[in-house]
Design a protein around this nucleic acid. Sequence first.
DNA 1: GCCGTTTTCGGCCCGACTGTTTTCAGTCG
Length: 594
Amino acid sequence: MKMTNLELAELLRRIAAAYEILGENRFRIIAYTRAADSIEHLTSELKDYWDNKRLREIPGVGDMLAGHIDEMFRTGHSKHFDSVMAKLPTSIYPLLLVPGIGPKKAYKLVTVLKLKNEKTVISDLEHAAKKHKIAPIEGFGEKSEELILSNIAIYRKGQIKENRMTLPVADGIAADIIAFIRRVPSVKRVDVLGSLRRQVATIGDIDIAVATANPKEVIAHFVAYPHQEIIEEGPTGASLRLHNGRQVDLRVQKSGRYGAMLQYFTGSKNHNIALRSFALSKGLSLSEYGIKHVRTGKIDTYATEEAFYNALGLPYIPPELREDKGEIQAAIRGSLPKLVDIKDVMGDVHLHTDYNLEPSHDLGMDSFTALLDRAAELHYEYIGLSDHNPSITNHSEKQIVAIMKRRKEYYEQQYSSWEKKTHKRVKYVLMCEVDILPDGKLALSDAALEYVDAVIASVHSSFTQERRIVTKRIVRAIESNPKVRILGHPTGRLLSKREGIDADWGEVFRACKTHDIALEINSYPDRLDLPDTLVFDAIKSGLRFCINTDSHAADHMNLMQYGVSVARRGWATKDDIVNTLSYNKFKSWLLKGA
DNA sequence: GCCGTTTTCGGCCCGACTGTTTTCAGTCG
């Protein structure tokens, strides 16, 4: 039976909700919810786990759930799931998507108001609220009735689009506000919190923490920042909606308690849950205020996060790792990875210049020498020229070979005059970003590839191919010429615009490992590709990465930090990244196939 | 129903907010 991860996660959430209504053991409910989260965030298809009899390896899936899921795949049903679902009307489930309505309220509303139609239940509820049929229900009242109406409106808005920001957009907004906040003399520290601090690929709201002895003054100043609406203003913080529609939350704390607050609001939620669970085993209870000794009730406070983690007997855990992917266990064992840092990066080898080789895709905007100058500013040892291949539809094979030959000569000449003129020391490698055609062939012949040192092979078309086909396609491209050294933006995703390809990543990774191919971590903020979760998986497969900016202008070269963040979120160390190598070592790795 | 610094049994995160309630239940992050 075909069943996606999302579908099964949704089913498990429904079972959890049903259990809640039925008064099941609350830990069983938590277990189902946990399993749902875990399955939703898997980077491989559940079916692959099932095929390989590895369901039990999924965190949160034990013998019991693995049995039910197995039954689903074999027969299309699970007797157990069906029997639970049969006990309750299906019209409760859509209501759970409305903010403020959980399982208990949904059940009460559905039964008392006799809302039976799953398809229309939200409109039916809205109708009932307007007719004041909700206020009289036990446990509800006037306010609940109004709240339901406004929350249905919010739900409908949310349905239209989930509008998240890329990292530089969020960084820009945060930087401006932070500069504004710093004007208050009593401000001791300012940090971003939440997903922005953890450098998640897309950001919803912006959260900011301030340490100060004078919270009142800081909050009063903050709400004077240009805004559309003050959503909330209280003694410990405030929330604004900006003119661009973005929400910004401020949290204020005294310096002595700042560490616990920073830790708490950086999250992730799952990291905090796991951390509190660990703390409890030591008789300690964690909160945003500090660490409480359960036996005595005494609360210790912490000025820094380091001190907070150390008090639990753990080393500092970098924010990028706080996703409950085993970082606490690693911290306990003392085996946290020493994450790669932007300063480790020695070169950027996916750059497009304005040299017109009549390419298949867009040219860069700046010259080779402009990129060399920028590389020198960034203290790189080397760059890689990776223009798109010449268009294959507009040229003959002979023309393409001639173009590639001319290109090589052009860059050689440009480089030598730049070097003489500036005496700067940046080296370059001559590469090419070559399309992986729908059948897995490269868009450049072996003859044309004589004129490059190495190839970044990338998918730029046919993104919706079936998994088996697209997997074979990539493997074929990797094996087609030994000059292929890097797999460019492997999934092809564009954040909030296009899903990536649906490949069997395990198989792609095996092929990359066999041929010592590096996976690109593309730093361009709309891509961030390979995604961090796949970086994490690929490292386990023993792969290495090349962090590139895919710059089409010199300014884009400054986006390297975002690719480094992806690498860090995937637990990458310096040794996992090929472009942390010195020029000589990098080049000898790159030229292995030449 | 899951899972393990030691635990294969006995635990399982914490606090805020809201609205309905006279001490709490439900929901959320």
